[in-house]
Amino acid sequence: MTTTRDRPGDGHRRTAERAAPAPSFTHLARLSDDTGLFEHARHAIVRREHGYCTDDVARGLLVTSREPEPSAQVLGLAECYLAFLTHAQDTLGAFHNRLGHDRRWADQPGLGDWWGRALWGLGTAAARHPAAWIRAEALVAFSLGAGRRSAAPHAMAFAGLGAAEVLRRHPGHAAAAALLDDAASAVGPAGPDPRWPWPQQRLSYASAALAEVVIAAGQLRGDASLIAAGLRMLTWLREVQMFNGRLSVVPAGGWRCDGPRPRHDQQPIEVAALADAFVTAAAVTGDPAWEIGLGQAVGWFLGDNDLGMVMWDPATGGGYDGLTTHGPNLNQGAESTLALISTLQHARRWS
């Protein structure tokens, strides 16, 4: 974690008014080898002893598949990440999550959040990757996993977002349609209290994915009431994460409806999830207010946050791991770097 002594100087303080930089894959490549994507780094240097996790590799496949004209480097990363996920998947569609640097799995295949993220990454690759051979293999692995169901709403939301990607390219994919329907149902209805119109009593992490999958399901079903429900969720989520006109996202420890509103440590994953959901809402509604929300998410990385601190390192291309009470946590792990890349990809598309 960053200490007061480690705080960046005035050179790290910026406003978000400048143009967003292009997404860079330099640090993602630095964190990757021929097996997968390492989870952690100390500053910009990979920590191999912590190994790899399916969660991050799946997000890596997602962002590399979103590139319309990938370089040879980015194409190689996508191939590596896809191979990792197919190796992590068992014959029934579940996934291992943690692989040591010794190339041994540290867990049994399961249906946790990593299963959902794997299907999101695979579904995105199957729908969007420019290389036909990657799309074909990703669709095989997605179809195998799409027959399973998780008891965790977040896992189902992530999987449902992958299903939505598949359905936009393959509208007749029955397993994807069933998974998306079940994912929207798993999110559940909003609570009766207008002060907390959220399906759960606690906001944890990547909460916007729950609203996004409801919006996506409504769009692909042609269900206006479901779209409206998802938009209400996302509107409230955005409102409660604004402070003095800028994003101030729910921190890693979460926020219960009956508890005080904490402000640190804020995580890039929450900002990236909001950016994803804002882009989906903008595409569905055509309302420019959601594009403004995307600009606020980009701004959070560029310094328009509670402390006025830039949340990435232009010298390395890595995203900082969190916004603490003292400033950025200067470690540049996979999750934060992927969150940065994902948000900047949206900024490029909607600029």
Rank of each mutant, 00 (worst) to 15 (best):
P199V: 01
P199K: 06
R263F: 14
R238Q: 03
Q200L: 14
Q266T: 11
A272I: 07
D265S: 10
F243W: 03
G253H: 02
P262W: 14
A224M: 03
V214R: 04
D182C: 02
L234Q: 09
C257R: 15
P199A: 10
A229H: 06
S207T: 06
L203P: 03
V214Q: 12
D276S: 12
V271G: 04
A177H: 15
A208V: 02
Q200V: 02
A178C: 09
R238C: 00
R195N: 12
G230V: 08
Q219Y: 01
P251A: 03
A176I: 13
A275M: 14
L220N: 07
R195D: 14
V214M: 10
R195G: 14
L226A: 06
S248G: 04
F243E: 12
S204A: 08
A229G: 11
R256Y: 08
A275K: 04
Q267S: 06
G222T: 10
D265W: 12
I215C: 13
P194H: 13
M233I: 09
G254L: 05
G230P: 07
G259S: 15
R246P: 04
V240L: 07
Q201W: 02
A217T: 00
L226K: 00
Q267D: 06
R195A: 13
G230H: 06
G218F: 08
Q201Y: 07
A176E: 13
I227G: 00
L234M: 11
V214D: 06
A211N: 08
P262G: 12
S248N: 11
V213P: 05
R256E: 05
E239P: 00
E270Q: 12
W236F: 10
R202A: 13
M242Q: 03
S204D: 15
R202K: 14
I215W: 07
P192C: 10
W236R: 04
F243H: 13
Q267K: 13
A277M: 03
V249P: 00
G253E: 11
A228Y: 04
I215H: 03
G218T: 08
L226Y: 03
G253M: 07
D181K: 11
E212I: 01
D265P: 15
M242I: 03
G230Q: 07
L237C: 05
R238N: 05
L237W: 06
W236E: 05
L203V: 11
V187M: 04
D265C: 07
A273Q: 09
P251H: 08
G254F: 11
A275L: 11
L247V: 13
E212P: 05
W255Q: 02
A217R: 06
W198C: 04
M242V: 02
P251C: 06
L237Q: 08
S185V: 04
A229P: 03
S225C: 04
D223A: 15
A228V: 01
A208C: 06
M242Y: 00
A224N: 03
L180V: 12
P268N: 12
A273D: 12
L237R: 00
L234C: 10
A186S: 15
C257M: 14
I215V: 15
A206N: 10
L203Y: 04
S225N: 08
A174T: 13
L220E: 07
D223G: 14
E270P: 00
P171M: 14
A190N: 02
P194D: 11
L274Q: 09
A174Y: 07
A229C: 14
A174M: 09
P171E: 10
L234W: 09
L220R: 15
S185F: 05
